[in-house]
Design a protein around this nucleic acid. Structure first.
Length: 668
DNA sequence: TAAGTGACCGGCAGGTAGTC
DNA sequence: GACTACCTGCCGGTCACTTA
């Protein structure tokens, strides 16, 4: 890869994120710069957000084992399988993983390599690259790695190993982009995909355009002044950046009909799913006396009153809100008299939104159920009062099967309401736009029709089957007798541009419904986020120093030592580029000097390490149980793309039965 | 008269209280 | 601890009714 640099390429035996983490933990890696090309095998079997959690662990592990090394991640490459559905699902997951990974890299000071120009022609077997594909991969890698290892753009010694190959293929650029667009948004009916795609690639272009980060930093001024002035200006720039900082982040909301909460709160796999900013659990079947506590979350719950003859509770809503966001959310207790709905208000200033957001956790009982009490009609009334004040999101189990019927007025136009030049509609009337949606469930039931009417009259739009992550409109419920799509996220039409993606998870042993996840763009006030970032990711790297009575005399001594003098002089003399890398380099050097001085003058206060709580071994952690659960989840994933394979389904339910029996026996 | 719609029913499964 | 009864949830199938 580099003619004059030492590069070691390790192909892992276990080609997964877990394998990479184990490899790093073994202590064999001593490199100054580490590049990971991982994730593809992982998203074969798991959801992108689960893989991202593992990558976070990998980053932490790498920082602990090889603290001096820079960390870079190559984006997950697309794959082309024979089965088109499989290809689409894989690449959709890959796209989400890349979006998440690029953000994670920004948050954790890692680097991210984007492969712009890869097209299907560049694959040997749909998975592995060949010929020009490899040249492109190397070239893109070098674009990010060169500045890290000190290879400058003009330095031809280490530039030419693949550069000539790359120049031959620059024409593939547009073709590659077209392919990726086609690949990720082959369903042209989907509303946001094109914009999302452009935003995504736009964002990444900015990310790699290093001068973009320092637009306000005027190079001409710096070159005219001395190094000291440049340093001061650079520090001023850094402070300005910090003052202006609002951490741009997504807000994640999940909803899950858990079909009875039981002991699931003790199951680590279940808890892994509850990692969103707002987690909504429906059909908890729990009474009011139970107290739920999850570290890092505040909990709001609603209990359905038990009928006289009922021997267990039914219904039930639990909402878990991350503590750092709780301040910006208010529980609207009096918003509804229904036991099946729970309204929250998300403050526009806190979340950096255009308007306040009214979020409703919804459970609509089946039309034939004794619990159905004109729920959709009442919900419409509640929506009409809140829609004046802000935007709406409904999420939950609607028990409504909507097939692919429109949730907007079809073929609506100004012209059809215009008779003899007289517009019969009020001036404020907004014409509905055709936004197609996909749904694997072709059944339309009574509640489905009612829900579509509600959407149409309240200018709400169903997100299922319209966004990246659910482009095929997957089923959300499965039982022995069939499948249905009854769990939805529904949002005000004006809110659609803020939706990043919407995805439905795979079927698992945990419920007959899948978890649905909504990710939105937002900009959360920085103080809480800064605190969080420091607490969770970086604080362990920062030592604290206490000024003592002897410190002032020690400081004079330390400042006069040759070592410190040299470090300060080096910093002043060194040229730092007027971009992000330059600022990072200068910061690092300055930190090192301050650290040396502080260590020699102050009392070092080491941060008390948290004692790890001894885990109580639960039934859930038994190996056989774990393996069964893993098998069920694997089948749940396969069923999604093989709906007609009855053997898969029967095996799935057989294993679920076996698992329940096993857990019951072990509890006894 | 055919197609669509809605109500009802049976079936299945899971959870829980009560009883033996 | 095992069994039973009952409640809840949701599916597919059937049948009566409505509509074009």
């Amino acid at each position: 890869m580099y003619q004059y640099k030492r590069v070691k390429v390790t192909t892992l035996h276990d080609k997964t994120v877990y394998g990479a983490t184990k490899f790093i933990a073994s202590g064999k890696v001593k490199a100054k710069n580490i590049v990971f090309q991982i994730g593809s095998n992982d998203i074969e079997e798991r959801q992108a957000d689960q893989v991202i959690m593992e990558i976070e662990n990998l980053i932490q592990q790498t920082k602990e084992c090889v603290p001096e090394a820079t960390i870079t991640f190559g984006e997950c490459l697309p794959r082309i399988y024979r089965d088109k559905v499989h290809t689409k699902e894989f690449n959709e997951r890959g796209h989400i993983l890349n979006l998440e990974l690029s953000e994670l890299c920004k948050e954790t000071n890692c680097h991210f390599i984007k492969y712009d120009y890869i097209s299907p022609d560049h694959f040997r077997d749909g998975i592995h690259l060949k010929g020009y594909g490899i040249a492109i991969l190397v070239s893109c890698m070098k674009r990010v790695i060169n500045p890290l290892i000190g290879v400058k753009s003009g330095d031809r010694r280490d530039q030419n190993t693949h550069a000539s190959d790359y120049r031959k293929v620059t024409n593939y650029g547009q073709k590659g982009v077209q392919y990726m667009q086609k690949n990720y948004q082959s369903n042209t009916g989907n509303y946001m995909k094109k914009d999302q795609f452009n935003n995504y690639y736009g964002q990444n272009q900015n990310m790699f355009s290093q001068s973009n980060h320092s637009n306000n930093y005027r190079k001409d001024q710096v070159e005219g002044n001395g190094n000291r002035d440049r340093m001061l200006e650079m520090m001023e720039y850094m402070l300005q950046e910090m003052r202006n900082m609002r951490i741009h982040k997504k807000l994640s909301i999940s909803s899950w009909n858990v079909h009875g909460l039981g002991d699931k709160m003790k199951d680590p796999m279940f808890l892994d799913f509850l990692n969103k900013d707002i987690n909504i659990l429906l059909e908890t079947w729990k009474g009011g006396s139970e107290d739920f506590k999850i570290e890092g979350y505040n909990i709001i719950s609603k209990v359905r009153k038990k009928t006289k003859k009922a021997k267990r509770h039914s219904g039930g809503i639990i909402v878990m809100i991350k503590k750092q966001f709780y301040k910006g959310i208010s529980y609207l207790k009096d918003a509804t008299s229904s036991q099946n709905r729970l309204w929250l208000k998300l403050d526009k200033y806190f979340f950096g939104l255009k308007q306040d957001l009214y979020l409703c956790a919804v459970y609509i009982p089946p039309f034939s159920s004794a619990h159905y009490d004109s729920d959709l009609e009442n919900l419409e009334n509640e929506i009409s009062s809140f829609s004046i004040e802000g935007q709406i999101i409904l999420i939950g189990d609607f028990n409504s099967r909507t097939a692919m019927k429109a949730d907007y007025i079809e073929n609506d136009s100004d012209e059809i309401n215009n008779f003899d030049g007289i517009d019969l509609l009020p001036e404020s009337y907004i014409t509905d736009i055709d936004i197609r949606r996909v749904n694997q469930d072709s059944t339309l039931n009574t509640l489905g029709n009612k829900l579509l009417e509600l959407c149409s009259s309240s200018r709400l739009r169903i997100l299922n089957g319209r966004f990246l992550g659910d482009s095929l409109g997957y089923f959300t419920y499965m039982c022995n007798t069939g499948f249905s799509t009854v769990d939805y996220a529904i949002a005000s039409e004006s809110l659609l541009p803020e939706v990043k993606y919407f995805k439905t998870n795979d079927f698992t042993y945990l419920s007959d419904h899948v978890q649905i996840n909504l990710y939105m763009n937002c900009s959360i006030i920085s103080d809480t986020c800064m605190k969080k970032c420091l607490d969770e990711k970086r604080w362990h790297l920062i030592k604290s120093y206490k000024w003592t009575e002897l410190s002032s005399s020690k400081l004079i001594d330390v400042l006069s030592t040759e070592n410190v003098k040299k470090e300060i002089l080096d910093l002043e003399m060194e040229h730092f580029d007027s971009n992000k890398l330059g600022v990072d380099g200068a910061t690092e050097k300055l930190n090192k000097i301050l650290q040396t001085i502080a260590e020699n003058t102050c009392k070092v206060i080491s941060k008390p390490t948290k004692k790890k709580k001894k885990k109580i071994k639960q039934v859930w952690s038994d190996n056989v149980v774990y393996e069964t659960k893993r098998q069920i989840n694997y089948l749940g994933n396969k069923i999604k793309n093989n709906l007609n394979d009855k053997s898969l389904k029967s095996k799935y339910f057989e294993l679920c039965k076996k698992l329940k029996k096993m857990i019951k026996q072990k509890k006894i």
